[in-house]
């Protein structure tokens, strides 16, 4: 954990208004000693929380690298020779890489499309308060809350009749529609944080509404767009119910694949655990990269309501 001194000194990660380089703040009536103890206590609590939050993943990782005959022993085995057989088997005997590919394609395509059509709409909603905008916002709110089954089951029938059932395209389209409301909400708040005067200035300079949006406003809200994109990507990457209904042999995603493995026996169950870990790993990395943007983006106006 960080030393208390480092923690007290405001750092650049603590936001733009952190008062960089300012002298140490007064430490309150109880004096520095109590403050240090409280700091340590807080860090201990955080460490415990982190461990608890990671425990399901860690426990799964243990089970996967154990030899099969002690993988799920009760009481559990704590000494064993680790093996990566489950990962090797997964890679060799299933089309896991294909599912991973499908998942990525669906996530990327749906994110890009949702942004391309969501950005202009969100901008319009932030600049034009009339009743149409209110109606659209309320519609988006309700759509965000819809139970998946209410739209996905008809989508299954529609995709069948259009001949696009079991394609990554159908799944990506469905996810664009399903995740669009959230992105519009988020983006609208980002746009609202950009002063209207900038629009006017740019338009006076001879920009059209569209080129102004493209050249001036969108670059201004970089972190906001990244935040929205990250959320869209995550939602699509994790989606299970929609994917299980709209895909089958040729465009199944990783969550769908893993879901069909959970009732397996040993050693395939270990393989399912391995697949879960392999799905978690990229998002693990993703989480590290993303957290900075998520904070900056969410902070820049999105959720101030």
């Amino acid at each position: 954990m960080a030393s208390s001194e480092a923690a007290q000194r405001p750092t650049t990660t603590q936001g733009r208004d952190a008062g960089r380089g300012r002298a140490k703040l007064p430490t309150g009536p109880r004096g520095p000693h109590t403050s240090r103890a409280r700091k340590v206590a807080a860090n201990v609590v955080l460490a415990v929380v982190c461990l608890l939050m990671l425990s399901p993943v860690l426990w799964t990782a243990f089970s996967v690298i154990k030899p099969t005959n002690v993988a799920f022993l009760n009481p559990p085995a704590f000494t064993f020779t680790p093996t990566l057989d489950a990962f090797v088997n997964l890679w060799q005997t299933t089309n896991f890489y294909q599912y991973l590919g499908n998942t990525l394609v669906v996530a990327v395509v749906s994110t890009v499309v949702a942004l391309v059509i969501g950005l202009p709409a969100a901008y319009a909603l932030s600049r034009s308060p009339g009743w149409v905008s209110v109606a659209l916002l309320v519609a988006a709110l309700v759509f965000r809350a819809l139970p998946r089954t209410a739209v996905v089951l008809p989508m299954y029938e529609i995709s069948r009749s259009l001949g696009i059932y079991d394609t990554t395209l159908a799944l990506a389209l469905a996810l664009v529609a399903i995740n669009q409301p959230f992105s519009i909400w988020l983006l609208r708040n980002f746009f609202a944080a950009v002063p209207k005067e900038i629009d006017e200035a740019a338009m006076i300079d001879g920009c059209t509404r569209f080129s102004m949006l493209r050249l001036v406003i969108i670059p201004l809200m970089g972190p906001g767009i990244i935040t929205a994109a990250l959320f869209m990507f995550l939602f699509a990457f994790q989606e299970y119910l929609t994917a299980v209904i709209l895909t089958d042999v040729s465009s199944a995603t990783v969550p769908v694949f893993i879901a069909t493995q959970l009732g397996q026996t040993l050693p395939l169950l270990q393989q399912a655990g391995a697949a879960s870990l392999l799905l978690t790993l990229p998002v693990f990395v993703f989480a590290f990269v993303a957290q900075k943007y998520l904070i900056a983006g969410l902070n820049s106006g999105s959720v101030k309501g």
Binding site: T94, V244, V249, L268
Partner: peptide
């Protein structure tokens, strides 16, 4: 053929 559990087979 891809590995699948019994519930998965029923559903598919």
């Amino acid at each position: 053929h891809e590995p699948i559990d019994f519930d998965g087979q029923t559903q598919r």
